[in-house]
Structure formats: C-alpha cells, structure tokens
Design a binder for these strands. Structure first.
Lengths: 318, 318
DNA sequence: CTGTTAGCGCTTTCAT
DNA sequence: ATGAAAGCGCTAACAG
C-alpha cells in the first residue's frame, strides 16, 4: 500500500489497481503529517508566509503568487500576519516551526533576526521578502527602492520643479530609508540642497502624512511637487492636496502603485513594482533551498517602473 | 517530559524547571504533527481558509480577522486561493484534508458542495463564508445582500430618481443574485417596472460593466442613477461615467466599500459591510464546531450600512 | 507524582 | 515484486 501512495515504481500494475480501488472504497486519505514524521528528508510539504499586513493590496497579490508556486509543488501554505511587530514575528516563526514547515518566507519586522539562525540549522529554509533581515545572512528579494525613488524625483525635476518635497516614513525602516536616500540623491544631482525644509521623514501613517503635507504647503516657499515614499503616505498627501484644493496645482509622484490610482483626479503617477514577480522569485528561491541548494545567499532586486498618469507631469506654476 | 510540554498539572515544580532548562539547552522544539497523530481528539491545531481571490481588499481584511481568532487559540492557518474555480476548491480541500486540518473556512465556488460531506464525516469542521454551499447543510456567515441592495436603490429613489439602472453580475452567483433581487424588489416598491431596459445583469467584470454602463448612458432614456452590485462592477461604471464626463451628473451607489472611495470625485457612496465581523463570526463558529458543538447548522447574517459620500446624494437633472 | 510502555499512520529497510 | 518489521516524536494509559 505504501508503495502505491508514494508513487514508487516497484509495484505491479495489478496490485496498484487493486490498492487504488480499495483506497477510494474505504475513503482512505493519506496523512501527510505522519508521512513527514518518518520520511528520510523529513519534509512536510508545507511552507509559511509571514506578511506584515494582509490588507495592503500589494501583499494580497504577492500571497497569490506564492501560493501559485507552492501549489505547483503540492505544497500547502500557512499565512500569518505579523503586523510589523517583532514579537508577533517570533511567535509566528515558533508556531510554524512546531508544525515543521519546510521553509519560511518572511517580510522581516524588527531589528534582529539572528534568532532565525537556529531554525535554519534545524532544517527550515528561509527567504526574506521586501526587506533584508538584520543580523542574519539570508536570501532576499527586494524592490529597487533607491533607483525607483531617484527616477521619481528626477521625473519631477524634468518637468521644471525645483522645490520638491520628500515625504517619507521612519528611517529605521529599510524600505523608507532606501527610498528617502534615493530621492535625496536625485535632489542633489539636480543641485538642490536636500537639507532644506522640504524633507519630512519619520511619518508614521496616512494621518501623519496629511498633517505634514498640509504644513509644508501652507508654509513659506511651499513645494511645487511632492514625492511620497509609500502608499499610506501618498494617500495622506492626496487628502492634504484635496483639502487645500491644490491637487491640480502641485505635482505628485508616489512610490507603490495602487488600485484606482488612474481614477483619481488628477490620476496619480506612481513608481510601480511587480508583486507577482516578487512572490514568484522568493518562492522559487525558497524551494531551491528546500531542495538542497547550499550556495551563498542571494539578493535579488526587482526593478521598478514609472507610471505617468497626470499628477507627476504637471509643470510648476508661472 | 511529555507532561511538562503538554502543560499537565501533575508535575512537581522542581522537575518542571529541570525539564524546561533542558528544553532550551538542547533546543527542543515540540513536533505538533506527531502530537496530533497520537492525541485522542486527533487535533492538529490548524485550520484552512479557502478564499476566492486574495487580491480583493475585502478578503485581506477578513483573512486578518480569521488569523486573529485562530491565533488566540494557538492555531495556525493554511490559506489557499481558489480563484472562483470549483476544481481548485476540491483540490485545495483534498490537500488540506491530507494535512488533517481541524476545520475549514470556505468561500464556496461551484454548484455542488456535497463532496464536503465525507470530509465532515471524517472529522473536519466546515463553515462557509460569504455564500452558502450548494447541496450541503453547513454553517454559513453571509452579508445581508438583499436588504443592503434594497436600501441602496431606495436611497436613490429618495433623491427623486426614477430611472435607476441596476448593474449586476451573473445570476448563477449567489451574492449577485441576492443583491440584484433586493434591488429589483426596491424598484418595484417604488412603482418602477424592473423589467425595463435599465437592468443589466450577467456582467462578468470591470471591463464588461464599463461597456454595459456606457451603452445604457448613451442609449435612449438614459438612467439618472446607477446601482452597481459589487466592487469590480462599481469601478467599471465609474470608468464609464468618467469617459462620458457624466460623473457629476449621474448618481451612483455601489455595493461593497473600497479604499479611496472617499478620494474619488465625486466621492462614491456605498453599501458597506464589515469584513472583520464576518471573519470573526465564521472563525468563532468554526472553533465551536471543532470543540464539539453538534447543534443544527446556523446561518448568521451580517448587516450592511449605507455610507453616503456624495455620488449617491445627487438629485436627477432638472 | 513519576517512570514505563504501547501505538498513532506512515516510510524505510531488510528479507524473501 | 512483495511482505514484514522497525521506528519517526509524540500522547495516553498503566503501574508504581
């Protein structure tokens, strides 16, 4: 019976048929948990995906891509929401380790991922997504944040803007730091002084971004263009522009594409990246590790693409 | 050792401490798969969530709520995307059954769910989400689709609209059918003839909805208001209105709330429901079943809420 | 309260 | 090519 269900070759046709018949007569369902217990490679054919927030549209798409790749290998996917909380991440990792997942796809939260080392030594493959882990060498798939941000700012400068505001998240967050640095590099390349009053980082969310944008736009020498470093900040800035009725005066390019960006007025120009590619690349790398690849950790960078829709192509006034 | 890790009371403090010390000295990680194998209740402390499409914003929020409830019970969650495909649903159920999940939360796809009966007999609890299963008695948590749609149409009628178009999905889909019927009931209550030229159902997606809306608005006796039965159709209709520059002339209420609805111009009035409540209720019901509740299947209906934002409060012209 | 043992459903190995 | 037996890590039941 075992040789039939595991698909081994050394079974005569007659016996195989007889066993298969019995299987669906008795409603036999193979138990993969017991299977993993005894298998030499100890695999359970499950992986875990740790995601910061499943409500972000980007993450849903990525999750879908991961499930697609896993499904091709008959592998089931645990998904856990970590909500940007290092403690929850540790708990989720421990929980999935108890279930003996073959591998873990992690969007790292928190300042220290060295604790993942022991899990890896215990045989769990690990690939990081969207940002590199701290204090751990591991495969990672990231967006080309610096270049994407620089392209956005250069694009605004090319429309003639000289007072370009940069609205970004906390510098403690890798993604925000990279994007902010890319934007500042581009500003410097334009001869602008990035130390000026138009840089607001450490913004924590949409409400915060709205307040910061409002203050900038109402202040002295207001910016004629905005670069926003991620979805939540972009929406906050848009709310500020609407409230001040400046949405058709001030240019805007945001990092991260989002649904309905083309339906807003003006339509929102963005730096887009490809969440399907990210999910695919990360999952494929994970399965390579699970299947025994022992080469040095890889960092794969997914390119970005500027999507001009109107808000970023507006020249400065006068 | 076993009595310590399972948290049984019959262990002396001294021994417990000694075992715990050894546990983290040796890096012991309990294997929950082996545990489920031997436990009398046979539980693995995992459940599965079958979702039609993880990219829908609604589903991400619901998934989050389910994970929250499951996490409180130290239960891990498999998530599988079924993509509205009955075959994929069966495969996903079989795959998770091989992993011996304690329960399954399913957004049913396809015309026949009687096959779930055998899984339930084998001990897997089942709760359906968003729509009832066909040919199977099971717990279900649904939105109050009929009433929500009726409220939307009545709201438009209350603004004075008499030519209200109904744009809906295929009647083979439970959700679309219910919403369409609710809308037609409300039309009849207003004395309108729902058999008229302003009803377009069987729309398959955003592109289709855009074409249908365009045709209606360009046709003879065009509607002065639109009701759209779900997110994809709402966005299609909005695109049509924009293209015809009618977005400020024709009223619109859509079923399903969505991010940025308030940032569109006009802001989009919607019938919203609460995906967090849905996820919670369904997960709680599932755990009740897992813990042995054998009462008759329950149908829980989550109420809707009309969110007026502007597009639905516009009176007809003249 | 603690030590020991059997056996969950499976894969692997060894013997035919 | 097939049968039989051992044992994966755990829990439950049985002794002391």
């Amino acid at each position: 019976v075992a040789r039939v269900v595991t698909g081994e070759a050394t079974v005569s046709e007659g016996l195989a048929v007889r066993v298969l018949a019995a299987i669906d007569e008795l409603g036999y369902r193979r138990d993969l948990n017991a299977s993993g217990l005894r298998r030499r490679d100890h695999r359970t054919e499950t992986i875990g995906l740790l995601v910061d927030d499943p409500r972000r549209p980007f993450n849903g798409t990525m999750q879908q891509a991961v499930q697609e790749i896993a499904g091709e290998r008959d592998c089931a996917v645990f998904v856990a929401s970590v909500d940007h909380d290092a403690g929850r991440e540790r708990d989720a990792v421990a929980s999935l380790a108890r279930r003996r997942v073959d591998g873990l796809l992690i969007m790292p939260s928190g300042p220290d991922h060295s604790y993942l080392g022991s899990q890896r030594r215990a045989g769990i493959a690990i690939v990081c997504l969207d940002r590199p882990p701290a204090r751990l060498e591991a495969d990672v798939v990231v967006v080309d944040n610096r270049v994407g941000a620089a392209v956005a700012v250069s694009h605004l400068a090319a429309q003639g803007h000289r007072r370009i505001a940069v609205l970004g998240g906390p510098r403690s967050a890798y993604v925000d730091r990279e994007r902010c640095d890319g934007a500042l590099d581009a500003l410097r390349a334009q001869g602008a002084d990035p130390g000026d009053a138009h840089v607001r980082v450490e913004l924590t969310g949409a409400a915060d971004a709205e307040a910061a944008a409002t203050a900038l736009l109402r202040g002295p020498g207001p910016p004629t263009a905005l670069f926003t470093s991620r979805y939540a900040i972009t929406t906050g800035a848009i709310r500020a522009l609407h409230r001040l009725r400046l949405e058709h005066e001030v240019a805007l390019v945001g990092f991260d594409d989002f649904p309905l960006a083309d339906l807003l007025r003006p339509a929102v120009s963005v730096v887009a990246h490809d969440p399907v590619a990210m999910g695919r690349l990360a999952a494929e790398q994970l399965f390579r590790r699970i299947e025994g690849d022992r080469t040095a950790p890889r960092c794969q960078v997914v390119p970005t693409r500027l999507v001009p829709r109107g808000s970023g192509e507006r020249p400065p006034p006068r």
